[in-house]
């Protein structure tokens, strides 16, 4: 019998970091993060982190009522993120839950946020999932752009799609800003500042401005932007038309927002999801073979394939290490 791929990875091997965001609230980001994590934890070491600092809910979707250590302990009591990650029962799933009763978490100081971002990227799990809050401000976008794969959850209705476009624009601008600082081409920063205040039209327009100012730097930035590949999940699908939405939106993003988007899959609406939430029962555990659960599992497997095929350059491992890492992963636990 073949052993499943992936168990505990060796400490030197970096795992995959995925972020689940979307701009609009209530699209199902937390549902997707929780259930992706639960499914993968059947055969992989997974950590899910509630990065919705102002209103954390991940623990609720995982059926956790009592939490000992939370993100507040990491941020204010100087514990390490690994220490705050609590294992859930006997599974391979660990949860870093947010704190509901610490005021001011939604407005985090810069140095605390940087520490959090750094330790998230250093997590020693095969897969680390970040559940990001609603909105397009820096506390959302900054967690999204550090991921190997960013997942946007949209619903088949206008507000959610509109907010997703806004989110992608905000993330792209932030990425460009960070790249400019990294490569020390600050004169282009003024261009971004001016762009933010104008009525936003197109990232293409901004890149053209850069190209006029400094063609070499513009090429460098365009190259960095190629690394950003938001993946789309359409949640709460009820009609065939809704399934098509994902592919269409991905195409629109590719053509008009200057980034490479991919469609991961569609999750059908299921009223049992709400029922499970009210009973504090994780959905994929109680309904493992429902259509929605199968859809989530398919999305998880596709994400694994995408991650294997193309790591972000910041987390690139040498080919030799990749092979060694894979051998490690294939060994049974």
């Amino acid at each position: 019998m073949l052993s499943p791929v992936g168990s505990v990875i060796n400490p030197e091997q970096k795992g995959y970091l995925w972020a689940v965001g979307g701009g609009k609230g209530g699209t199902g980001k937390t549902f997707v993060s929780a259930n992706l994590g639960l499914h993968l934890s059947a055969y992989l070491d997974v950590t899910v982190i509630d990065a919705d600092l102002g209103s954390p809910n991940l623990h609720t979707f995982l059926g956790v009522k009592n939490r000992n250590l939370t993100l507040a302990d990491f941020l204010y009591r100087r514990l390490q993120l690994e220490q705050v990650a609590a294992r859930m029962g006997h599974s391979k799933l660990r949860l870093v839950s947010g704190s509901s009763d610490t005021l001011g978490l939604g407005n985090l100081e810069h140095f605390r946020k940087q520490r959090l971002l750094r330790q998230i990227q250093e997590m020693r799990s095969a897969v680390t999932l970040l559940d990001i809050g609603a909105g397009t401000h820096f506390n959302c976008v900054d967690f999204f752009i550090i991921a190997d794969v960013g997942i946007l959850v949209i619903n088949p209705e206008p507000a959610s799609v509109e907010n997703a476009y806004q989110f992608i624009r905000a993330a792209t601008l932030r990425l460009l800003e960070n790249s400019i600082r990294k490569h020390k081409i600050q004169h282009l920063l003024e261009r971004i500042g001016a762009y933010r205040q104008e009525v936003p039209r197109s990232i293409h327009g901004l890149l053209e401005l850069f190209a006029k100012e400094d063609p070499g730097s513009a090429d460098l930035l365009a190259g960095e932007l190629e690394q950003f590949r938001p993946c789309l999940v359409v949640n709460k699908v009820r009609k065939d038309d809704d399934v098509v939405l994902g592919r269409c939106v991905a195409d629109l993003v590719n053509k008009f927002l200057a980034v490479r988007a991919e469609f991961l899959g569609a999750i059908p609406f299921d009223e049992q999801i709400d029922a499970c939430l009210r009973c504090f029962t994780p959905y994929v555990t109680s309904h493992p073979y429902s259509q929605a659960a199968c859809a989530v599992k398919l999305i998880a497997e596709r994400l694994m394939t995408i991650s294997r095929d193309g790591r972000r350059s910041s987390l690139m491992v040498e080919p030799a290490d990749e092979e060694a890492g894979r051998t490690e992963l294939l060994r049974s636990s």
Binding site: V5, D240, V243, P268, Y289, Q291
Partner: peptide, 21 residues
Amino acid sequence: LSDGYMLSGGQYLRTIRLSRG
């Protein structure tokens, strides 16, 4: 809608196999 999610569907199984490498 369920056609795409058929549990025993060849495509579904293939996706799982590929993602396990």
